[in-house]
């Protein structure tokens, strides 16, 4: 067990404690806890079915765990977020938390314009002036390195890499305190993957956005994360500094995982 922080005195942004969730007989999450500091990137790795995406969706308040607590240290945000009603959840997720899904169909309206997809976020947060909506949508798309001449094209006409950029623009449009990424580069070809990774790294360094990223691609996790959490069968088997988990894995499962990497 490591000591409590002594030098970094800021409070954690995110604290999740003992989150458990069962789907029928299947225990998807058992006692998962995580702490993330402002500006930090937490990577979560694990095989399919390890519960990593369920945990991420819980952080996006799409799932209601059976037990456990989840707090965000933000102004006007109090108590266990799992206790919020549907409306409060929707407002919180629309304004403070951004998410990028592996499947753009989950995050985007495929037949609406890309700029409209981003602006929809701003509308939910109460912005009504058309010029502001458009400017902010353009800024977010630009920060996501989306080619602006295509901002009015619907995502269905765009490549997978471009669709991920629209999702990313939508997620960061309101400068969220927390950005959640669920396999953001899985399914993209390697050159596009590199570009998306580069964009994420820039956002992380320039805007200091706190991120939780789930991927089964260890290279992606290693490139982006400060800290890594390894999950298996709904449990956290190991967590630590990214280089430590990859270079000196303690748990048998993590060793197996690291040694299996190409």
């Amino acid at each position: 067990m490591m000591d409590a922080p002594k030098i970094v005195t800021t409070r954690p942004l995110l604290i999740a404690r003992n989150v458990s969730k069962a789907y029928g007989d299947v225990q998807a999450l058992s006692d998962v806890s995580a702490t993330v500091y402002p500006g930090e990137v937490l990577g979560i790795v694990g095989e399919s079915g390890s519960g990593k995406s369920t945990f991420l969706r819980s952080l996006n308040l799409e799932e209601t765990p059976d037990t456990g607590s989840y707090t965000l240290d933000l102004p006007d945000v109090q108590g266990n977020l799992f206790d919020l009603d549907r409306y409060a959840r929707r407002m919180l997720c629309a304004t403070k938390i951004g998410i990028v899904y592996q499947n753009p169909h989950l995050g985007l309206l495929m037949k609406h314009s890309s700029s409209g997809n981003v602006a929809e976020r701003l509308l939910v947060a109460g912005e009504r002036r058309f010029s502001v909506l458009r400017d902010k949508a353009r800024d977010a798309l630009d920060a996501s390195e989306f080619p602006l001449e295509r901002m009015d094209a619907p995502p269905i006409e765009l490549s997978g890499g471009m669709q991920q950029r629209v999702q990313l623009a939508k997620a960061i449009a309101l400068e969220p305190a927390l950005l959640l990424l669920d396999e953001p580069t899985t399914g993209l070809d390697v050159s596009v993957q590199a570009l998306v990774l580069d964009t994420l790294k820039k956002l992380q360094q320039e805007r200091k956005i706190t991120m939780v990223i789930v991927s089964h691609d260890l290279g992606v996790i290693r490139t982006l994360s400060d800290r890594v959490m390894v999950m298996r069968r709904g449990k956290v088997v190991e967590q630590g500094l990214a280089d430590q988990v990859f270079q000196d894995p303690q748990h048998a499962y993590t060793q197996q995982l690291v040694h299996a990497k190409l």
Binding site: D3, A4, P5, K6, I7, V8, Y37, D226, L241
Partner: peptide, 14 residues
């Protein structure tokens, strides 16, 4: 600070 036991965030910072 004892680097062998320091919190991950402190090590990252240092």
């Amino acid at each position: 600070i004892d680097l062998a036991r320091a919190a991950d965030v402190d090590v990252t910072y240092l």
